[in-house]
């Protein structure tokens, strides 16, 4: 898949999903179990992304390196109720600092 195909296909599917909410009957997603699964879906995917982005390396191998320090910093900043940008930039700075110091 070329980069442009990925960009356009993911955009088309995202738009179709949004529009579907304006067109389909609400009964399709009614029911406590179904709505609970749908609410938890982004939690699962984002947690999986955090795990893979923090530990994942070439070919699916797992590593502990500067990224773990960055995520730890992000969690501290989030607990302090820092703004999203502060969290992201702070984490990047920690990773850059650890690497400059020769770790990870």
């Amino acid at each position: 898949m070329s980069a442009w195909t990925i960009v356009l296909l993911s955009s088309a599917l995202a738009y179709a999903t949004k529009l579907a909410g304006y067109l389909v009957p609400e009964s399709w997603v009614e029911g406590p179990r179904r709505s609970r699964v749908l609410t938890l879906l982004p939690v699962a995917l984002l947690a999986g992304l955090v795990a893979v982005q923090t530990f994942g390396g070439q070919g699916g191998s797992l590593h502990v390196d500067a990224r773990l320090g960055a995520v730890a910093c992000a969690i501290v900043l989030l607990r302090l109720r820092a703004n999203f940008l502060v969290v992201v930039i702070g984490a990047a700075a920690v990773a850059a600092g650890l690497r400059a110091a020769g770790w990870g």
Partner: peptide, 14 residues
Amino acid sequence: GLDAAAAAAFTALL
């Protein structure tokens, strides 16, 4: 540290 920034962004979204 931009690769680590991605992990931090997902943490902040979660």
